[in-house]
Design a protein around this nucleic acid. Structure first.
Lengths: 231, 231, 231, 231
DNA sequence: CATGAATGAGTGTTCATTCAT
DNA sequence: CATGAATGAACACTCATTCAT
C-alpha cells in the first residue's frame, strides 16, 4: 500500500544546518544511539550516555532530537525503514524466478540488516514494545507493514506465476519472516550467552530456511541446501 | 490455572517457631512475580506490586529474595520444571507417521505452553538474557537443549523412516522452533500493541507452519492447510 | 451552592497511619511548604527544599503527596478552604445587624488569614495562575467560589433586611473582596520592598474600607472610622 | 500600538561604524519582551522567544542585555514613562464636581492603562517584586507614588470643597486604588483561567466601584450604578 | 518473622548563557 | 556586530533497598 516511502526527506535535520558538514552531529549521535540501544535496550540506555559516546553534551542531543523516543525513531529510520524505498525498487525491477527473488530477499536482508548492528532493533522492539506503545505503533507502521508488504508481493508474484501454490498470504508472510527475526533475536539474546554449540552459521541457516520454505521437509533435497554436514 | 496455592494455612497456629513450610510465602511471591514479569517485563515490574499481589509487604519480599534480580532468577528457575521427561516418553511411544508426530508436537506445545501463562517465560528470557547471562546459560541448558533434542529426534525419525529427506538437523530444528517462538514473542509484544490487522489465529498459524514445514511453498496444497480464505 | 464543604476528611493522610502521631509528617511538610510557597512562589520552590525544611527526604514528601501540585492543594486546603465550613456555620448563626456582620467578616478574615502566612496564598495564586491552570481551577473552585458565596450571602441578607440598598451582587462581592486581596498582595510584594511610608496599619485599613463600603465618601463620617489622624 | 519602531533603517549604510541610534535593536527587543512578559510572566518567558519575536537571534539579545533579569528591568523602566505630568495637568484644569473628577479618573485610567497592554506592568510588578527588590523600589517611587499623589489630590479637593467628608487620605487613596489594581490583576491571572462565570465587565465594575466609593452600600441607589440586572 | 516508613541515587527534559566563527 | 551551536546546571518524580519497631 504505502510502499512508496517518502524517505527522501532526511529524518533529523536539527539546527537548520545551512551548509558545511551536514548530518555530522546527528550522524554521530545516531551511531552512538544505535550501539547503545542495541547493547542495553531502549529503557536502559541513558540519553546522557548516548551524548557522551557521540562526544557531545546532553543538551546537544536534544538540540537534534526532541526526545529519547524521537531519537529512537530516527535510529530506526536511518537503519531500517529508510531503505524500503530502494528495496521496493529493486524488487519492482527483478526479473528472475520468484524462487530466486525470495533467495535474493533473504540474503540481501542479511547483508544489509541481519549482519549489521541494525539487527538488534527487531530484538529490541519485541523486548520493549509492551512498555513503549508509541514506539511499537511507529515500528509497526514504518517497519513491519512495509516489510510485510514487500514479502507479500513476492509471494503473490510466485502464486500468480504458478511458481508457488495458493496460500493464505498473511500466514505465508509470517512464515518467511519468523525464522529471520528469530535468528537475530537469538543472536542478540540467548545466542550470545552460551557456548558455541548454539552458534549458527547465518548463510547455512538462511539457505536451509529457503530450501524448506520452497520444498518442505518431505520433498527431495535441493542441490545445495540442507546439506548433511553437521555444524 | 494451577495457581490455587495451598496458602490458606491454618491461621490458628500462633507464631509458629521455625515452621518447616519454607515455600509458602515464597510460593505466592513467585507466582505473583511470574504474572507480573510476564505481563510487564522485568524492569517495568515494581517489587511493591509483586508483594501486594502476593498479599505481603515489600519488606517481606526482601526477606525471601535479597534483590529484585534474585527474585527474577528464582521465578525463571521455578517455572522451568522438567516437563521434558514426560514429553519424551510420549514421543517414544508415538506410533503414527512422523508427519503426524510433528503435528502432534506443535499442537501439544501450543496447548501446554504456547497458550498458557508459561509462554511468557521464553519471551522474558529472550528479552532479559543480556542482563542475566548466568540465567541465560541455565535456560539454554535446561530448556533449549532438551527442547531441541526432542525436535531433533522427531526429524531424525522422519529421515530414518524415509518420510523426510536428508537434512542438516541443527538447522532443521531451528526452522521448526523459530515460528513457534516467534509467535509467542509476537503475542507478548508487538501483537498486543497494534491494531488487530496484525492479530494471528494460533491454530491457523500453526497449521500453515506445519504445512510449509512439510511441503514448502512449491508443493501442491495439502487438504486443510494454507487455505486461501483470509483470516 | 456548594457551601457545605466536605472538609472533614483530612486532605492528605499519606501512608495509612494506623495510630500514634497522626498528621505529624504531613503537618511538618505542609508548614514547610506554606513557608516556601509564600516566600518564593510555586514554580520557584523546589520540592527538595520543602522536604529539607521539614526534616525529611525528597522521597518522603512524595510518600505523602503524589505531586508538587497536590502538595500545594493540600496547603491551600489546610490553610484556607478547609475553614469555610466553620466560617459558614458562624455566619448562619450570626444574629446582629448586617453591618456588624460585614465588620465581623472583615476582621475575622484578617485574624485567620490576612495576618498569617496564609495571606501569601492569594498573592501566589494571582502571580502563578497563568502558568498553572490546574491550580487556578482548583483555587477558583475551593477558595474563590466559597468565599464569594459567603460574602454574597452577607450582602443578600443586608438587602433583604433593608439595611443595604439593592445592588448587583456580583460586583458588590468583588468590591468587598478587592481591597482585602489588594492589601495582602501589597504586603507580599511591593509593600515589603519599600520604606515604611507605604506601610499600612491593617486595622485602620480595614476600618476605613468598612466605613467606605457602608457609607461612601460622600456620607457623614461614622464615629470611629476614617479618622483624620495621618499614619 | 505605538510599537511601529523606526527600524526600517536605510539598508544602504554598509557596516555603519559606531552608529548613534543605539535604541534600534533594543527597542524591538523591549517591545517583544514586554508582550511576552505580560502574557506569560517572567519565568515562563523564554529569551529565545523574545529574540524570535524581535527578529534577532538569541545571541544578539545577550549582546544588548547581559541577562534575562536585566532585560526585565529594562522593560519595566522603559514602560514607565512620565505620563503623570500630563495627567496632573488635566486634573489641575478640571472644573466639574469632584464626583465627576473621580469618575473621570477611573475611566480615563481604564482607557489609557487598564484596557491596554500596559495593564500587564502592574501585574508583572506585583508578581515579581520579591525577586526584583530594586525594581520594586523604583516602581514604587516612579509609579505608585505619583499615582497616589494624584488620587490624594482629588480626595483632598473633594474634602476641601465639602463634597466629601473628612477622611484619612492615606487609606482613602488605597481604597480607590485597590479595586482598579485588583481588576487588572484578576484579568491577567485567575480571570483568564476559569469559566466565564468569573468574567467581569470593566465598565460595570468601575461604575459599581465609583458608586460605592461615593455612597456606600447603605445609601440610596444612584441613578445608573449598581443596577440589579445581573451581567 | 513481618512490617511499611524512610531513603536517595538516577533519568528525561528545559533553557539561560557562552563563544567560535 | 551578529549568529546559533553547544553547554550543563537544574528539577520533578520513581523505586529498589534498608531498618527500627
Amino acid at each position: 500500500m504505502s510502499s512508496s516511502s517518502p524517505l527522501s526527506t532526511p529524518p533529523a535535520d536539527g539546527p537548520v544546518r545551512r551548509t558545511r558538514r551536514k548530518e555530522a552531529r546527528p550522524g554521530e549521535l545516531l551511531a552512538a544511539a544505535l550501539d547503545l540501544f542495541v547493547e542495553k535496550g531502549f529503557a536502559a540506555t541513558r540519553v546522557e550516555e548516548v551524548a557522551q559516546r557521540a562526544g557531545v553534551s546532553k543538551g546537544t542531543l536534544f538540540l537534534y532530537f526532541p526526545s529519547k523516543e524521537d531519537l529512537f525513531k530516527a535510529v530506526v529510520r536511518e537503519n531500517i525503514s529508510g531503505r524500503f524505498a530502494e528495496w521496493n525498487d529493486e524488487f519492482d525491477r527483478f526479473e528472475g524466478s520468484t524462487q530466486e527473488m525470495l533467495r535474493y530477499c533473504l540474503f540481501s536482508w542479511w547483508d544489509r540488516i541481519g549482519s549489521t548492528k541494525a539487527s538488534g532493533i527487531p530484538k529490541l522492539m519485541m523486548s520493549e514494545a509492551q512498555n513503549f506503545p508509541a514506539l511499537a505503533q511507529f515500528y509497526q507502521l514504518e517497519v513491519m507493514q512495509p516489510g510485510n508488504n514487500l514479502i507479500e508481493r513476492i509471494l503473490q508474484r510466485g502464486v500468480a506465476r504458478g511458481e508457488f501454490r495458493a496460500m493464505n498470504l498473511k500466514y505465508g508472510v509470517m512464515l518467511v519472516l519468523a525464522p529471520m527475526i528469530f535468528m537475530v533475536m537469538w543472536q542478540h539474546s540467548l545466542g550470545i550467552c552460551c557456548g558455541n554449540h548454539v552458534q549458527l552459521d547465518p548463510h547455512q541457516y538462511l539457505t536451509a530456511q529457503l530450501d524448506m520454505l520452497l520444498h518442505g521437509f518431505c520433498a527431495a533435497p535441493s542441490s545445495e541446501a540442507m546439506e548433511i554436514t553437521p555444524a
